[in-house]
Design a binder for these strands. Structure first.
Lengths: 212, 212
DNA sequence: AAAATTCCGTGGTTTTAACCACGAAACAAA
DNA sequence: TTTGTTTCGTGGTTAAAACCACGGAATTTT
């Protein structure tokens, strides 16, 4: 369980406190097979999940039946935390194991409400959760600003600009993913990048960019 | 201060506890003139604000100097809470009074960390804050899903669909605002709405819609 | 009621991005 | 090395949305 210490949710909690805490929180560990459903759309999210190994997918089923991938979760990431904190009754998404995986799940109630023995880590845990969700908030906010720009060029400039000018930027995406992130079509992105290079605005090779 | 009891942040806190709590939190009240800056971009957000009267604007200054309005805050709304919770050092936005206004500001530290006298409302307050931010999160998430759809029609269907089918939907926007929200151009939205009416998908008069 | 202002729909034009198809490069596997 | 597979750029076409301009309806102000 070396991983646990590195998870944002548990930041600042001493290694030797961890196991007592997990017991107090009613943490459950599960080795799940591919395609196991960890949270079903429509149900009430009551547990915060932590991915320990493998990959989970967050799936949204449209009103007319077609599925879209909302996110892919890697080890160390957590899920259902915002749903729990918001107190939603019916989850809008399904969480399913994309590969065989190991998952930890914690009763949300036990995080929030101090236990009879008033363990010291509750406040820290809540503070961490608050920080995580707030940061996700800001990320969503800034992505929204980017996505709502009105041209591919603006989006690219904003995106690269967020890293800073002049220096080499290693974008953590391939073209397809970058296009998704900016919410444009892949080939349209390629076209625009080529134009911007011609116009002397940027240079790039693969996923390394320099903003002039 | 009747308003305070109705604010999400203070939900569940008894009326008669409120004033003691505010003292404990170091709440400061201010009557500010139009154009007063309440939080300056680049500075460290340390206080959570509550609008008591008037209107505030959240402004973002682009790298190249042009200002955009991120949000307009009405009485009862709070601001800077996500920034504080995320622990950001330099605010990306400025908050400024658009009209003369009355504002309450609370030291974030005092919300988070229980005071020496261990007032009982801290946990409740933090729980409320967590809920507010988590819900904002989900809102952003679902708006993102809408905004990233690839046609005006899809956006409209998704938006109206979120209210439900068959019944009369009173959209809380005029056309311009609705277009902004969907991130499309106003006249393009009008065009598409007209087409959708012709196609028998929707009916509408002004901001009242029915999704068939 | 008249005047002014805001809001909305609509036709027409232009610009842009989506879409499609394909080939070369990069990379991985055999 | 050959083969297969994924990734990316690019030309050409089509579809869609942005943009513009205007007029009438609706609303507010005087």
């Amino acid at each position: 369980m070396r991983l646990l210490g590195a998870i944002g949710l548990f930041k600042g909690i001493k290694e030797d406190e961890l196991s007592a805490m997990l017991k107090c929180l009613g943490a459950e560990f599960a080795n799940v097979k591919r395609n196991t459903v960890l949270l079903l759309a429509g149900h009430r999210p009551q547990r915060v999940g932590v991915v320990l190994s493998g990959q989970l997918h967050i799936i949204k089923e449209d009103y007319d039946g077609n599925r879209t991938l909302v996110a892919a979760l890697e080890p160390g990431e957590i899920f259902a935390e915002a749903l729990c904190c918001a107190g939603v009754e019916h989850s809008p998404v399904t969480v399913v194991a994309e590969t065989d995986a190991k998952v930890m799940q914690i009763q949300f109630e036990r995080i929030l409400h101090t236990c009879p023995s008033a363990c010291g880590f509750h406040t820290k845990l809540i503070e961490n959760m608050l920080g995580l969700i707030a940061r996700k908030n800001l990320l969503l906010q800034s992505r929204m600003e980017m996505v709502t720009l009105h041209s591919v060029r603006e989006k690219v400039l904003r995106y690269l600009g967020s890293f800073g000018k002049g220096k080499t930027i290693v974008v953590p995406f391939n073209r397809e993913q970058m296009a998704d992130y900016l919410s444009v079509e892949r080939s349209a992105l390629s076209h625009e990048l080529a134009k911007m290079k011609r116009d002397g605005l940027i240079e790039y090779r693969k996923n390394e960019f320099i903003l002039r």
